[in-house]
C-alpha cells in the first residue's frame, strides 16, 4: 500500500475548474501551491481534518465529491424500498417508527448533499446526475421489498452493513463529511435496532410470519455482503482513498467484520443464513463464508437489477413534478427581495 507521500507525487496538480463545476480559488503561484500541498500532506499525516477552505488536490476533491454524492443518492433512493410499506404498516407503532426512519434518511441525504456543496458541488446538479444515471447509488436498493419482514431485514442487515462501512468514516480526513457521519451513524444504529426488534417480534408470532422472516433473510443476505464493494484485489480506488484517509479499512476487512458481528445475531434470532460454507475458522479467528456472486453485483450496478428502472423513475418523477414548486419558491423570494429593496430605498 503506498504511503500518503507516494500518492502525493502522482497527485493531480491542475488548477482551474474542477469536476462538477467546483469553484476554485484564484490562480495561485507555484510556490504558494507547493507550500499548500505540503500543509495538506502534513494535515493528513497527522490525522487532522481537511476543511472546506483548505487547499486540497483536485483528485482528492473529485474523489470526495463522487463518494459523498453517491452516499447522499443512496440515502434518498434508499427511502423507496421501505417507504413502499408505510401505507401498509400493520400497527400504528410500526407505522410511526418506519415514518421516522424514512424521514431520517431524507435528513441524511440533506447533510450529505450539504457536505458535498462545501466541496463546490451543487445539489441541483448532483440530483440531475442521479436522475440521468450519470452518478450511482448503492446497488442494494435495486432489490424489491416483498413483505413487511423486509422492513426488519433491511434495518438489521442493510443498515447493519451500512454502519460497519460508515463508522470508520466518522474519522474521515474531510471535516464536513466526518461530522455528518457521526450523526448519521447514531441514527443508523437506531434503525438497525428497530429492524432487529421487528424480526424478533415476528419470530415470536405465527408460523407464517417466521416464514416471511426466513424468506427475507435469504433474499437480502448476499446483496448485503455485496454492499462492501468488490474484493480488495479488484478495488482500484481503495489504496488512494486509504492513503488520503477518506477510507480507513478495505472492503474485505469491513465485510469480514460485518459477517463476524452478524452470525451470532442470526443465531439469537433463530434464523440460518443462506450459505452452506459459513463456519467459524478458529485459526483465523473469523467466520469463513462462501464465494460471492460478483457477476450479480456487476449486473445490478450496470442497471440490470430487479428495480433499477423503477427507483430512478420514481426519483425522476418527484424531481420533475416538483419543478414548478421550486420555481415558485424562487420567484416568490425574488419578489420579496425586490419589495424589501424598494422599502429599504424609501426608508434610506
Amino acid at each position: 500500500m503506498p504511503s500518503a507521500e507516494e500518492v502525493m507525487t502522482v497527485t493531480d496538480r491542475r488548477t482551474g475548474h474542477g469536476p462538477d463545476g467546483a469553484r476554485r480559488p484564484p490562480e495561485a503561484t507555484l510556490a504558494d501551491e507547493t507550500e499548500a500541498q505540503a500543509r495538506f500532506e502534513r494535515l493528513i499525516a497527522e490525522d487532522q481534518r481537511i476543511e472546506p477552505r483548505d487547499w486540497m488536490p483536485e483528485a482528492y476533491r473529485a474523489t470526495l465529491i463522487r463518494q459523498v454524492a453517491q452516499h447522499a443518492h443512496s440515502e434518498i433512493i434508499g427511502m423507496q424500498p421501505e417507504g413502499a410499506w408505510l401505507t401498509r404498516a400493520p400497527s400504528l407503532r410500526r407505522k410511526a417508527i418506519l415514518l421516522a426512519k424514512v424521514q431520517d434518511e431524507a435528513g441524511h441525504g440533506l447533510y450529505l448533499y450539504s457536505a458535498c456543496e462545501t466541496l463546490g458541488a451543487d445539489r441541483a446538479d448532483l440530483t440531475e446526475k442521479l436522475v440521468t444515471g450519470r452518478q450511482k447509488y448503492s446497488s442494494i436498493f435495486n432489490y424489491p421489498t416483498l413483505s413487511f419482514a423486509d422492513v426488519g431485514v433491511i434495518g438489521w442487515l442493510v443498515d447493519g452493513a451500512a454502519i460497519c462501512n460508515q463508522v470508520p468514516l466518522c474519522r474521515s480526513s474531510y471535516g464536513p463529511y466526518a461530522r455528518a457521519m457521526i450523526r448519521i451513524c447514531k441514527e443508523e444504529s437506531f434503525h438497525q435496532r428497530q429492524g432487529y426488534e421487528l424480526l424478533m417480534t415476528m419470530m415470536g408470532g405465527t408460523e407464517e410470519q417466521r416464514a416471511q422472516v426466513r424468506d427475507a433473510v435469504d433474499r437480502w443476505w448476499w446483496p448485503s455482503l455485496m454492499m462492501f464493494g468488490p474484493p480488495d484485489a479488484e478495488s482500484p480506488n481503495t489504496a488512494r482513498s486509504m492513503a488520503w484517509r477518506i477510507k480507513r479499512h478495505t472492503n474485505d476487512e469491513l465485510r469480514q467484520r460485518f459477517v463476524d458481528i452478524t452470525v451470532p445475531q442470526a443465531e439469537a434470532l433463530g434464523v440460518s443464513l443462506p450459505d452452506p460454507d459459513l463456519r467459524w475458522n478458529a485459526e483465523r479467528g473469523h467466520y469463513d463464508h462462501g464465494p460471492i456472486d460478483w457477476d450479480e453485483l456487476s449486473r445490478v450496478i450496470r442497471g440490470d437489477g430487479p428495480c433499477n428502472a423503477e427507483r430512478i423513475a420514481t426519483r425522476r418523477a418527484a424531481h420533475r413534478d416538483g419543478e414548478w414548486v421550486r420555481r415558485a419558491a424562487s420567484a416568490h423570494a425574488a419578489k420579496r427581495a425586490a419589495r424589501d429593496a424598494v422599502g429599504a430605498g424609501v426608508a434610506g
Binding site: M79, G322, E323, V325
Partner: peptide, 11 residues
Amino acid sequence: CTHAPELEEEV
C-alpha cells in the same frame, strides 16, 4: 414520502 418537490419538504 419520496414524492415531495424538495428534500426539505420530505422531512
